[in-house]
Design a protein around this nucleic acid. Structure first.
Lengths: 367, 367
DNA sequence: CTGTTAGCGCTTTCAT
DNA sequence: ATGAAAGCGCTAACAG
């Protein structure tokens, strides 16, 4: 019956008890630092445990206490710089509290997100941090069910419609609006936007755009809304040809932005909502032999060490990735600790790092 | 005694059994897909499970089987692009095999590595992938003990002295030698190296360098050895002033490389062993108003999407990060599956992506 | 084919 | 202060 345990040699509490000549409970009390044990026995137990190299079996403990000291993290892709930054924040905060984390990637697929949640629930994690892939009208019962069953969940990076729970985000809409606005201040009126929502039938007008937006991922929607806000503020008409609708990978960004650059009335500025989009846009510029700032201005989301050493250095919107992660972990830990206050929405500040990739419309582009 | 489980509502196998009017074992057999169950009962059980929303408690299963279907991953920093790439490879391979992963970061500190291993053993993971922070003469008993107890371990990115176990690495020395050699072909004789080993008392000659190297992290050592190999091949004397000895962060790289650039006999080329070193060097160049290629050549480890859009595009050594991770996971899974063959050393190919940051020594730098 | 039973290693009453 | 015993939810013999 006893299966071939990995740790055939791993001593159990019983062996320690035997070696120390006491009962299991006494060992548990000593090692668990609770109840009371006489100094004499405590010493004996400690010595025996030491000698045998005893290591508590966390699994068994969790089985009996219902506490795993483990957080479940669900995000799109660990290799994405934004998420890996967030992950670092989460991990650090978790470790400091004696927790560790199981990370599952969804690759932005709701299907995988459901699997992930299921696995994590089965593993009895103490709480969940999730950057959901769910759009407005998607079924999020995998999340609401978990919550109903008493699993603490905090949303990160993205709000999800219909879930009134803790969340940690930035003000995407305002960050976006401010960046685009600053370009408009500089005289730009043709501003490309990557990435817009992925769709086979691109919007043909503002109204369609809005209804597509309603179905989009929260953060994506907000960023585009911010862009639209800025245009509207300045009375600039929305041009659907300036918003990408392709799949979100570098190659597609290059293609899409390249296409815009070839337009009769090409953009004089580009706004990108993610690192891959930025790099894709940069490549398109390269291909079209266009120089940043001198020919086309550029501002994008998610600063990177590289952005500062580009020529010219890139103006970027910096998100406090580690803080986002740390805040989410702390909020979750608080819930696990029994905090039953109202759901809290943490909105962390983002920063527009003004460098030199954006400026006035070049004279040769003015019409 | 029953603690307040997160999942107060989570139905157990007994409840399903009761609801279906059969014994627990029958339920276990049905749900676990083993043994034999009549179609009639199977249907009943399935229906009951469905109705109750039964979800197996993985913890309990693990407790009884000794198998957690969980891999323990120990690496320096999840936010480092190299490791996050590797991590992605590991995660994908693991998930495909029905495993998931607990990731612990050591921040390159042996102390934290020991903690990590301890935690992971206590959690009864089925195997370990570790990028150890251990140098040549460090105590690695935390690893050897685990191995002795039958825990499968595969080393990634770094070999560790005295541990004859599975490993997945690239040929750092040769990759480094080849890159530096190509610079030498181009006429460079003063080639800066970042990062060299961190030390308070920098080497003053080649011999000291070698003994410092003997204590370094395997991969770091190999990369510097490759550099030295290339110099030796070409009969170029080693200059200790061209190897950094500072802490490994961007700021220090900038400072150190900046210092070299200010030398009476400055380097005409720079070789960097990591992204942060590369960015640091780039910053130093920026500060000193030196242009890549035209003034100073540059080649570095770890390609990035950004490297291709720099002006000029950067020549980089690309490591197959995902493959490294996937290979490690697969090797580990094989061991978990019972493979007892000889330890295997996987050496994956790296690629020197020739772009345009390296070339001949500029005439104005020739003496 | 199916039910009973005995653990897995630990925590936690409950007596003593 | 300490030991005995029950139980966490599941798996795995062993009978029937």
């Amino acid at each position: 019956m006893s299966p071939d345990h990995q740790h055939a040699g791993a001593p159990t509490i019983s062996e320690v008890a035997a070696a120390a000549g006491v009962g299991r409970a006494t060992v548990a009390r000593t090692l668990g630092n609770y109840g009371s044990v006489s100094d004499a026995t405590r010493a004996k137990v400690l010595r025996a445990a030491e000698r045998l190299g005893y290591q508590a079996n966390t699994l068994a403990r969790s089985m009996s206490t219902g506490i795993t000291k483990t957080l479940g993290i669900v995000l799109a892709d660990v290799a994405n710089p934004f998420f890996s930054g967030v992950l670092r924040g989460i991990s650090e905060a978790a470790r400091q509290a004696g927790y560790d984390a199981i990370i599952l990637s969804t690759d932005e697929k709701l299907e995988l997100e459901r699997d992930a949640i299921r696995v994590l629930l089965a593993k009895q994690v103490d709480g969940l941090v999730v950057a959901s892939a769910a759009g407005r009208s998607d079924d999020v019962s995998h999340l609401s069910n978990a919550i109903e069953r008493g699993m603490p969940v905090v949303l990160i990076d993205r709000l999800v419609d219909g879930l009134d729970i803790d969340s940690v985000v930035i003000d995407n809409r305002e960050a976006s609006r401010a960046a685009v606005s600053s370009m408009i201040q500089n005289g730009h009126r043709r501003i490309a936007f990557a990435w817009g929502p992925v769709t086979l039938s691109p919007a043909t007008d503002l109204q369609q755009m809005h209804s597509i937006l309603d179905e989009a991922l929260w953060s994506d929607g907000e960023r585009l809304r911010g862009y639209l806000d800025a245009l509207e503020e300045a009375g600039i008409p929305f041009d659907t040809a300036l918003v990408t609708h392709v799949l979100k990978n570098e190659r597609q960004a290059t293609r899409a932005v390249g296409g815009m650059l070839a337009l009769a009335d090409p953009p004089t500025a580009i706004f990108t909502t993610e690192t891959e989009a930025t790099v894709g846009a940069l490549r398109a510029l390269q291909t079209h032999n266009l120089r940043i700032l001198k020919d086309v201005s550029l501002i994008g989301f998610d600063d990177s060490p590289w952005a500062a050493v580009m020529e010219p250095p890139l103006t970027m919107i910096q998100q406090p990735m580690r803080e986002l992660g740390a805040t989410a972990a702390q909020q979750l830990l608080a819930r696990i600790g029994g905090d039953t206050s109202e759901p809290k929405k943490h909105v962390l500040p983002s920063t527009l790092l003004a460098r030199s990739s954006d400026g006035p419309v070049p004279s040769h582009a003015r019409r």
